[in-house]
Design a protein around this nucleic acid. Structure first.
Length: 374
DNA sequence: CGGAGGTCTGATCATGGTCT
DNA sequence: AGACCATGATCAGACCTCCG
């Protein structure tokens, strides 16, 4: 067990990817558009965010009044690399050390209760925050006792005080992270890999409409800033901008937003097949029954027919377009097919990956039209 | 030709059962 | 109990194809 924690922590250290300000702004805007007061009177906690670097911290401080926050709590996991400091809060040497002989910079905790223009330059900005924090009136800044791991007791105590968690957690710890959030019954807006949809911790919640995808990155292409430039192949890392490109990245949330309630425009089966070969769309078998599932194969989200009332298997990226008023989610193939058989959700099912005429297809989610029934 | 959408591997690690 | 093996689950990526 101890060993497991060690390896996790080691891995987490490599998870140094900073979300861009514009991406956070765009995502939060989607929730505000749906309900302008979602954040009003709320305690927001960013528990994987170094305030020295984090754009989450920056966003929520700068929009503290506009959102009507009650409090913003931020904790970091690891020491800040000195090179990328946005917030020139303190001389680095002033930073209290945990113990002698160890690096002076440690995991930090920031608690913001109030923000206002303190230096009288007519606008509120990060300089004001720095001054307020230095004065240690109303707002708090202190090192954490431990390493700032989101699972540590002091971070869990802070989590308990929070209403909404917003952050970009280490992907390698995503399952544990979600499990903790759900366990403490928190609202959240977090970033994860699209494959996490199929996780045992995640999919059942999606199915029950307790969790869904957020507004999202443009086309699932997310660009994160990273100081670890050497770990990436060219094409993935852009030296000019310092950004790493990731495919298939999305926001996971249980806050509602408008796009989620827009039904996907659909065509009939015949219309979808019109310009393609019989039973094929873009060279893929379409609308055939699976060999091992009581459902038909729909190879593209675009190709979901408007006129089929039975169970349909669709790619996981369908969830980005999922509108709960339009469709019902029945199950998924999960990894190697656990969880669904004979048209029903079944935990003990051991059915293998979906096959169409003996050919294996990728992971599928099983959905059905919601119809006005008599 | 670049953006959007979907699918692809096999290395790697966790887990669980069985053999000394 | 600990070593060893079989199986399951995952992937802060890589690649391919279609389309305008």
């Amino acid at each position: 067990m101890a060993n497991k924690n060690l390896t996790s922590a080691k891995r987490a250290k490599n998870d140094e990817f900073y979300t861009q300000y514009a991406d956070i702004q765009k995502e939060i805007a989607a929730y505000l558009e749906y309900d302008y007061d979602v954040f009003r009177g709320k305690v927001v906690y960013c528990n994987c965010d170094d305030p020295f670097e984090s754009n989450f911290f920056r966003y929520f401080v700068l929009n503290f009044k506009k959102l009507g926050l009650r409090q913003l709590i931020t904790t970091s996991y690891k020491p800040s690399p000195i090179a990328y400091t946005q917030l020139e809060l303190f001389e680095r040497d002033e930073t209290p050390s945990v113990s002698k002989g160890r690096p002076k910079i440690t995991a930090n905790k920031f608690i913001i209760n109030t923000v206002h223009d303190i230096d009288g330059d007519g606008e509120f900005n990060l300089e004001d925050v720095a001054k307020q924090l230095k004065a240690r009136k109303q707002n708090e800044w202190m090192p954490l006792k431990g390493d700032g791991d989101f699972r540590s007791p002091e971070c869990i105590d802070l989590l308990k005080q929070a209403d909404i968690v917003v952050t970009n957690p280490p992907f390698s710890l995503f399952r544990e992270y979600v499990r903790q959030l759900v366990g403490y019954n928190k609202k959240f807006v977090i970033i994860g890999n699209m494959n996490a949809i199929t996780y045992k911790e995640v999919f059942p919640q999606i199915k029950n409409n307790q969790l869904w995808l957020g507004n999202g990155f443009h086309a699932g292409n997310a660009y994160f800033f990273t100081p670890n430039t050497r770990d990436f192949a060219s094409g993935v890392f852009d030296a000019k901008t310092g950004l790493v490109k990731f495919r298939n990245v999305c926001w996971y949330t249980n806050l509602d937003h408008g796009r989620r309630h827009q039904p996907l425009p659909l065509m009939t089966m015949a219309e979808n097949l019109k310009y393609s070969k019989h039973k094929e769309i873009k060279g893929k078998k379409a609308y055939e029954k699976y060999d091992n599932y009581d459902a038909i194969e729909v190879p593209f989200t675009d190709a979901i027919p408007s006129d089929y009332d039975g169970v349909m298997g669709v790619p996981i990226s369908f969830l980005d377009k999922y509108c709960p008023e339009q469709f019902e989610i029945l199950g998924a193939t999960e990894s190697e097919g656990r969880g669904f058989s004979n048209g029903l959700w079944d935990e003990s099912s051991k059915v293998s990956q979906p096959l169409v005429k003996g050919q294996r297809v990728y992971k599928r989610i099983f959905i059905k039209h919601k119809r006005e029934t008599i």
